[in-house]
Amino acid sequence: MASAPAHAQENRFALSYGDDGQAPAHTAWRRRVERARLDYDAFAARAVEVYLSYAPPAPREKRAPGVTTIMRDPTLRAGDIYAATDGFMVFRGRAAAAHAPADFTPLPDERARKLSLAIAPAR
C-alpha cells in the first residue's frame, strides 16, 4: 500500500481540526459551555435584581402590652409587674374584670435593677 506524502497527511490532519488547532468536538463543547455560562450569568443577574427589588419587611418594634390590654386582663393579682413603654408597672388593685390606671404604680428604677440582676443568668 502506497503511503501518502507527509505533507498530504499533515493537510488531512489539519482539516480535521479547527483554525485554533482543536478538534471540532472540543470546539463545539467549549461553545456549549460558554453559552451555558452566559445563560447562567443572565439568570443570576435577574435573580439578584428580583431579590433586591423586594424590600424587607420593616422591623417590628417590640412593644409592651398596650394599656387597654392590661386593663382588661382578668388574671392580674396584686404585686404583678408588667413592662410598659415608660418602665415597669406594679399592679396594686384587686382582681376584677376591668382595672383603672390608678391600680398601677411605677416600679422604682432601683428596685427594677435589683430584680433584673436577680433573674439575669450568671455569666
Rank of each mutant, 00 (worst) to 15 (best):
R12Y: 11
D41K: 07
P65E: 07
A97Q: 12
L15D: 08
R37D: 11
D73V: 00
P74F: 04
D20G: 05
P5W: 07
Q22S: 09
A14E: 06
Y40W: 14
V90P: 01
E61D: 11
A8F: 10
D20F: 02
I81K: 00
E61L: 14
M89D: 01
R30C: 00
A23E: 13
A55V: 12
Y82A: 05
Y82I: 06
A45Q: 13
R30Y: 03
A25V: 11
V48N: 12
P65V: 09
S16F: 00
R92G: 10
S16L: 09
A8Y: 10
Y40T: 04
F13T: 05
F13Q: 00
Y17Q: 12
G66E: 08
T27F: 01
G93S: 05
A42Y: 08
A36V: 04
P57S: 01
R12D: 07
I81V: 15
G66Q: 06
Q9N: 13
A36M: 11
H7S: 14
A28M: 06
D39A: 14
G18H: 09
A55T: 13
M89R: 15
A55D: 13
Y82N: 01
V48K: 14
S3F: 08
K62I: 04
P57M: 00
A36K: 13
S3V: 13
Q9M: 11
A44I: 04
A4F: 10
R31Y: 02
P57L: 02
T75H: 09
F88E: 03
Q9S: 07
H26A: 09
A95S: 13
V50L: 12
E61F: 05
A23Q: 10
R60I: 12
A84M: 03
T85S: 15
A95G: 09
A25W: 08
G79F: 12
F13D: 02
R12K: 11
V50K: 09
R92C: 15
N11M: 01
I81M: 04
G87A: 06
T27W: 00
D86K: 15
P59I: 01
R37G: 07
M71L: 15
R37N: 10
R94V: 09
A6W: 09
Q22W: 12
